[in-house]
Simulated assay, not measured.
Amino acid sequence: MTYGGFQIEAFEAGRGLWHARIRREDHQPVVIDGVSFPELEVGFAWSDAEAAIADAKTRVDYLNRRFLTTEKTRKTAHV
């Protein structure tokens, strides 16, 4: 599924242990504190795929808020 500019993929890592993987929709790496990640596995071992996806959506929201704040700060600093 696509959410907030990211592709979210739920996967089962063990019986009944659901996780989620996110990657940017444009296939660019996610950069966190200067470290580049082609994709991120997020969350805990959820009991179903829907819970893993819901958790991934909260992570995407966080990344989008953080990116917007960082970009706004950077643009203001270079004006």
Rank of each mutant, 00 (worst) to 15 (best):
S36N: 02
S47K: 09
V60E: 01
G14H: 01
A77K: 13
Y3N: 06
R66N: 10
R74P: 02
Y3V: 07
A10E: 08
Q7L: 11
G5T: 06
G5K: 06
Y62W: 15
T73H: 14
G43Q: 03
F11I: 02
V42T: 00
E71S: 12
E39P: 01
D48M: 14
G34K: 09
L68T: 00
E39Q: 10
R15G: 07
S36C: 06
E71L: 14
E12I: 04
A77H: 12
F6H: 05
T58Q: 11
P38M: 12
I53R: 07
R65D: 14
Q28K: 09
Y3H: 10
R59M: 11
A13H: 01
L63E: 03
L17R: 09
V60R: 06
F37T: 01
I8M: 08
E71T: 10
R59C: 09
I32H: 04
A45V: 06
E9D: 09
T2K: 07
T69K: 15
M1E: 12
D33P: 04
R59D: 02
A13P: 00
L17N: 09
G16T: 03
Q7F: 12
D61Y: 09
G43N: 07
V60K: 07
L68Q: 06
P38S: 09
T58S: 13
Y62F: 14
F11L: 08
G16S: 14
R23P: 02
P29G: 01
V31E: 15
E25M: 03
E71G: 08
D48C: 13
I22N: 05
F44T: 02
S47G: 10
S47L: 08
F67H: 03
L17E: 09
R23T: 03
N64S: 14
Q28A: 12
A56G: 08
L40H: 08
S47C: 05
Q7G: 04
E71P: 00
W18C: 05
M1Y: 12
I32Q: 02
L17Q: 14
V79S: 10
A49S: 13
G5Y: 08
V42W: 01
T69F: 15
P38W: 02
P38R: 10
A54P: 00
L17I: 13
A52H: 04
I32M: 08
F37C: 00
W46L: 02
R66A: 13
E39Y: 15
G16I: 02
E71Y: 05
A10Q: 08
R24S: 09
K57N: 06
L63H: 07
R59H: 04
R24M: 14
P29M: 11
T73N: 15
R24H: 08
E9T: 07
L68I: 00
G4T: 05
G16C: 04
Y62D: 08
A10V: 02
R59P: 00
T69G: 14
D33K: 10
T69S: 14
T2M: 08
P29I: 13
D61G: 11
A20I: 03
A20G: 06
P29C: 04
T76D: 15
D61S: 12
Y62V: 06
K57Q: 14
I32S: 00
E12F: 05
P38C: 07
V60I: 11
R24V: 02
T76L: 15
L63D: 01
N64D: 11
Y62I: 06
F67Q: 10
V30S: 03
D26K: 08
